[in-house]
Write a protein that binds this DNA or RNA. Structure first.
Lengths: 190, 190
DNA sequence: ACCAGCATGTTACCGGGGGTAACATGACGT
DNA sequence: ACGTCATGTTACCCCCGGTAACATGCTGGT
């Protein structure tokens, strides 16, 4: 109808766009029929494209997290010194979740998001591994230390971000500053 | 049948025990009928006691988290110096999730656990607030810094714990050591 | 002794959401 | 013109959360 030569990949993107819109609108109450309706089609087509609900959510999460991961990776390589890089990366993360809070909430702490959750975990793990590699290379940390720190740092920023999304009582830069301070030993030094 | 003078509270505990068992056995596939069956009764009774599924899971989470919170609070007050207290507290947390991994997984990263999730969030917030208070009192940190750090630290330990549960490649003490190092500025100092 | 009333329990049902089978329809190559 | 394959639909199944309506038995007041 709308377009003639839509190949599968483009269609898939369009479906994901619809899902995105519905998730942003309905939050956890999003349902397969609703998404299908939003896309102007019916349920079974969604299932042909994504297998099951898990597949759809996983694809959605993959799109979101891969974009975010790219941005974070760029930030990690952009700074002048180590502290500046950390700062930019933390800021990039917080800016991302600030920009699309509904999708973020849905992916990270939704009820239905068990499927997406797997994807998010993959993202977390990839990001943590990224950091771990960086730390190992940069400061010669052993693998255990690097892995523990990588996951820990990611969790730290994530948790602080969750809290901040819930109660945004402070501008982003300030939170970024506090977290950077924490990472760079301000707690131990106090 | 089983007992005569079971008052409501005791009954409630027994039901929670049953739920606990089923959750440990079936994981996210736990269902209300199954839990009821495990307790030797039928669905509506569960509903009379807990309102809805959310109520049951919330009660379950409350029981678990309040015990954990007590242990953590004790650890926070037990140490000799600051670093020792942090060490003990991190260890207490990791020991707890190591002891009951199924329940932990269910509460924190289950699909169905949206209801419990609220309770877990409350726990996280209480714990974060506890840390924040401690930091504010101990190092005179401002409220924003204290809150950000509180949530960040909790998230850090939680995330590292998740990872460690998934891939327990290292004894607990070692992870505790790495995390304590991270908190006390080993990253910034490297 | 008897009955009102309440707690405790059951069966049987509803509604909705995930998932699928079976059928329609239209664009193609041969 | 006709099989074939993608694309789409309707109508259904099943399971699970949640509830209504009905049984049963213990209590206490008169």
């Amino acid at each position: 109808m709308t377009l003639l030569a839509n190949d599968r990949a483009a269609r898939r993107e369009a479906l994901l766009d619809a899902a995105d819109r519905i998730v942003a609108r309905d939050g956890p109450a999003a349902t397969m029929v609703t998404i299908a309706a939003e896309a102007g089609i019916t349920k079974p087509i969604l299932y042909r494209h994504f297998g099951d609900k898990g597949g759809l959510y996983a694809a959605l999460a993959e799109r979101y997290t891969s974009a975010l991961l790219a941005r974070l990776q760029a930030a990690l390589e952009a700074g002048t010194d180590r502290r500046d890089r950390v700062r930019r990366t933390v800021d990039a993360y917080l800016a991302a979740i600030e920009g699309e809070p509904q999708v973020y909430r849905f992916l990270v702490l939704s009820d239905e998001a068990a499927a997406a959750s797997a994807q998010v975990r993959t993202f977390t793990r990839r990001l943590s591994a990224l950091l771990a590699d960086g730390m190992a290379a940069e400061l010669g940390a052993g693998p255990v230390r690097a892995a523990a720190w990588g996951h820990g740092v990611v969790g730290m920023v994530q948790a602080a971000g969750d809290w901040w999304l819930d109660t945004p009582t402070v501008p982003r830069e300030e939170l970024v500053g506090e977290l950077t301070d924490l990472l760079f030993g301000a707690y131990g030094a106090a």
